[in-house]
């Protein structure tokens, strides 16, 4: 098999640029998705049935349908109401964020519910409000336990961002497809892409392990 390095080097600037955008889309989705997920998770735990029900169905929808379908619905269905022309980059980021928020909401809920009920009682018996207790006592303890499952979610999200290629969001996978269709070559187009994702996920894993260690020390 002859491997055409010239294709790889020709597309390398685009791969790097795409990888950069993959990082940007993922980080934005992780950041906003985590904040959104916290609120959705808290809403899901609300004692008011109706509020809880709304968030249950948010989670059902985004966990129960393929993210591929969600990206298409958001890009071609929802986003045209908000912007014209629709930016694929924005559509992809929105889809990733909303999807991640659903998973992260469940991670938050599991983390919060894993904290001993006595912690809530002790803080409440000292006169702290429910919100103060959540913020100062429960969530900091839950967060430590949430790091490993959050790590899984972040890695999944980073890989799922490759679906942006189908709506022409110019992330890493998009340039793989571009190289492939320009030269009708598979290895030269997708091996560098695979290597790129692997480097990104390994870096993320490394950072999460460090974070986990730091939290375990304190």
């Amino acid at each position: 098999m002859d491997f055409r390095w010239d294709i790889v080097s020709e597309y390398m600037p685009y791969f790097l640029q795409g990888a950069g955008l993959t990082i940007v889309f993922s980080l934005v989705a992780i950041f906003i998705g985590t904040i959104l997920g916290l609120f959705i998770g808290l809403g899901r735990m609300s004692e008011k049935k109706i509020i809880s029900y709304i968030f249950v169905w948010y989670i059902n929808f985004f966990r129960g349908t393929p993210i591929f379908v969600q990206i298409l619905l958001i890009h071609f269905g929802a986003m045209p109401y908000f912007m014209n022309p629709v930016s694929p980059a924005v559509s992809l980021t929105v889809a990733l964020t909303l999807n991640a928020a659903a998973y992260i909401a469940e991670i938050f809920r599991a983390g919060i519910q894993s904290i001993d009920k006595g912690q809530m009682e002790a803080a409440r018996s000292l006169g702290m409000t429910k919100a103060q207790t959540m913020w100062h006592i429960i969530i900091p303890q839950a967060f430590k336990r949430m790091i490993p499952p959050l790590g899984n979610e972040f890695i999944a999200l980073l890989k799922e961002s490759s679906l942006g290629a189908v709506i022409a969001a110019p992330e890493l996978m998009y340039w793989g497809r571009a190289a492939s269709s320009a030269y009708y070559r598979t290895w030269e187009a997708y091996l560098p892409v695979a290597a790129g994702y692997l480097m990104l996920t390994l870096t993320l894993t490394y950072l999460l392990t460090k974070l986990e260690k730091r939290f375990n020390l304190s």
Binding site: E121, A122, A123
Partner: peptide, 8 residues
């Protein structure tokens, strides 16, 4: 009975 100190 079980103290419930804040471990963090």
């Amino acid at each position: 009975q079980h103290f419930h100190l804040f471990p963090h």
